[in-house]
Design a binder for these strands. Structure first.
Length: 260
DNA sequence: ATGGTTGATCCTCAA
């Protein structure tokens, strides 16, 4: 089962790019972030026509996440637990049955957190703490699960072309990195890094200042696997060429292959 | 030091 994550940066503005990629790459499951669309205006038909079932958690103008799957989508849950007052659409999870067993797929869009320090950075760190709590509960189930999405955290210096440029940014600050490490240290595996330990891997290039042309990228989109999922990992990668297409997102898809 | 880009919605904000 091939599972991909893609921060689409506006699903309506990016519909033709998304449909082209779905038809070419044919991922079994896709986690989308930054829909910037309400449920009612989400382009369901075009995606359903390509053979995908849909579970959407949208919001007006900002955020928004969705799971697309060629297989059935079961037991959908919307919203990250831990704060009933949080109405930002940043989390959707569901079970996808495979040929041998099933996988719990969690699609997440972590807060950007800039400017830091400040209230937005506080919200980011509080959200990451809630993510850790959910990640802990998932581990206790001892089943294959994937945390897939835009974590808005650069894990280590080697995950940025110019790490020094991000040292004070919410995406690269030590507090953000520590929050991600706390989740990894529970027992999660970085599906990209575990198979590509020494590779230059970026998933985001800013629209500004010719970041793409200069390969001034960062790796902030991640696939974290429970041990039961990591045991079945056979391949992973970054669909880098997507950044060079017409009207691209500023992110590209990341994917992994699980024997499920 | 500034400005550079994009999308969605309301003439600004979030990224």
């Amino acid at each position: 089962m091939r599972i991909a994550s893609f921060n689409i940066n506006g699903v309506k503005a990016r519909l033709s790019l998304l449909c082209d990629w779905l038809a070419e790459a044919r991922p079994d499951v896709v986690c989308l972030q930054e829909l910037k669309s309400q449920d009612e205006s989400f382009p369901r038909e075009a995606i359903a026509d390509l053979g995908y079932n849909l579970a959407i958690h949208g919001q007006k103008a900002f955020n928004g996440v969705a799971i697309l799957s060629r297989r059935p989508i079961e037991d959908v849950s919307r919203g990250l637990p831990g704060d009933d007052g949080d109405d930002q659409a940043r989390w959707i999870e569901a079970t996808v049955p495979g040929e041998s067993g099933a996988v719990r797929v969690c699609c997440l869009y972590a807060p950007n957190g800039n400017p830091a320090p400040g209230p937005k950075f506080d919200y980011k760190l509080a959200w990451m703490a809630r993510l850790k709590a959910r990640a802990e509960a998932l581990l206790a189930a001892e089943e294959p699960a994937v945390l897939a999405g835009d974590f808005n955290v650069i894990p280590q210096d080697e995950d940025a072309a110019r790490p020094e440029a991000w040292a004070e940014d919410a995406l690269g600050r030590p507090e953000s990195r520590a929050a991600l490490r706390r989740i990894l240290h529970l027992g999660y595996w970085d599906a990209l890094r575990v198979l590509h330990p020494a590779e230059r891997l970026y998933t985001f290039w800013d629209y500004q200042k010719g970041a793409w042309e200069r390969d001034d990228g960062i790796r902030i989109d991640h696939l974290l696997l429970t041990p039961q999922a990591a045991d079945r990992l056979t391949a992973s990668g970054v669909s880098r060429e997507m950044r060079g297409r017409e009207r691209p997102s500023d992110h590209v898809p990341v994917w992994c292959e699980l024997e499920i």
